[in-house]
């Protein structure tokens, strides 16, 4: 065991600058994993099954039918309505995240099919300001719901977010109402909405559109809740129960429909969409 660790450590140091690119350490079991292996396993640790956070483009690749995806997001850009500055001006934070991710804000998505069902797929980008929801995320979700309703598509949103974005203050809070109310466009047309909760989904995102889907799926072990565990711990001044606010805990408490491993996610999503979407039956038969 000790030898094993020594060996691993030497290997991470030994390769110089290239090594961090080739090897990753699992945050759950601390195993060193060859990155290519991890990618082949859809970024799930082969040792312990820990689901690594996924980039939004990779997420879309894993869920959309091959070659079907056309992006619709990107035209809506953030502004700085409050001229907000904390330890750094909001505009500078935005510029940095935009440079790092190549996206205007914390959401990416477009039209595609999933198992043949016409879908509007949106994924929140945790790498952009913790996936926080400000005016842009709210606007893209409202537009997504409206477009899905207009074109007869199912709506699928993959949530990964720390909650509402503080730097847009009350305007971020209002996005909770805006996104929630936009979902009713789908309701009127009997179009399905599936929410996929990934690590982490908390705050104003959980407490609005993410919790209101026809079917709610979650990846294993994802942190999901309203208040973050640190805040709760400070409030109650007690240790939190084992597994508190993890997907499995939420399933037990009746808040989710299913916890689905990443390698099953696409099939489960397609299964649900085909049953719910008016064109699901037809597309299924067409495939046979």
């Amino acid at each position: 065991m000790a030898l094993d660790r020594l060996f691993r450590r030497r290997r991470t140091r030994g390769g110089g600058r290239d090594v961090p690119e080739l090897w990753l350490k699992c945050p759950s079991c601390e195993a060193q994993i060859y990155k290519k292996d991890l990618e082949a396993d859809l970024m799930v640790c082969p040792e312990c099954g820990h689901h690594f956070r996924l980039g939004v483009e990779e997420r879309v690749r894993q869920l959309a039918d091959e070659g079907s995806f056309e992006p619709t997001t990107g035209a809506v850009r953030p502004t700085d309505p409050l001229r907000f500055t904390d330890t750094e001006p909001y505009t500078e934070r935005l510029a940095r995240y935009q440079q790092e991710t190549g996206r205007p804000d914390a959401i990416y998505g477009g039209t595609c099919t999933v198992g043949g069902v016409p879908t509007l797929l949106l994924a929140m980008d945790y790498a952009f300001a913790g996936g926080s929801m400000g005016s842009v995320v709210g606007e893209e979700i409202a537009r997504g719901a409206e477009l899905a309703a207009e074109e007869g598509r199912a709506l699928v949103i993959v949530a990964a977010s720390g909650g509402a974005r503080m730097q847009e203050a009350a305007l971020s809070l209002m996005q909770m109402a805006k996104t929630t109310m936009a979902l009713d466009r789908l309701w009127e047309k009997r179009l399905p909405y599936v929410s996929i909760l990934t690590d982490p989904t908390t705050g104003g995102v959980t407490a609005s559109f993410a919790a209101l889907a026809d079917v709610i799926l979650a990846e294993p072990g994802a942190l999901i809740g309203f208040a973050g565990p640190r805040v709760i711990k400070q409030t109650i001044r007690q240790d939190l129960p084992e597994g508190f606010q993890r997907s499995e805990f939420l399933l037990r408490h009746g808040m989710l429909d299913r916890v689905v491993e990443r390698r099953e996610l696409r099939a489960t999503l397609a299964h649900v969409l085909r049953l719910l979407h008016p064109e699901g039956g037809a597309s299924d038969a067409a495939r046979v």
């Binding site: 909770m176 109402a177 929630t180 109310m181 979902l183 009713d184 908390t202 705050g203 959980t206 407490a207 609005s208 559109f209 993410a210 919790a211 209101l212 809740g225 309203f226 208040a227 805040v231 709760i232 409030t235 109650i236 007690q238 939190l240 129960p241 508190f244 606010q245 408490h253 009746g254 808040m255």
Partner: peptide, 24 residues
């Protein structure tokens, strides 16, 4: 809204979302 263990167990985020929707 109260940030506590029991509130989370009983779906604090879910009821807030539902209440926003219901009022809308």
């Amino acid at each position: 809204a109260y940030p506590g263990v029991s509130a989370e167990e009983r779906g604090q985020a879910w009821v807030i979302a539902q209440s926003i929707q219901r009022m809308g």
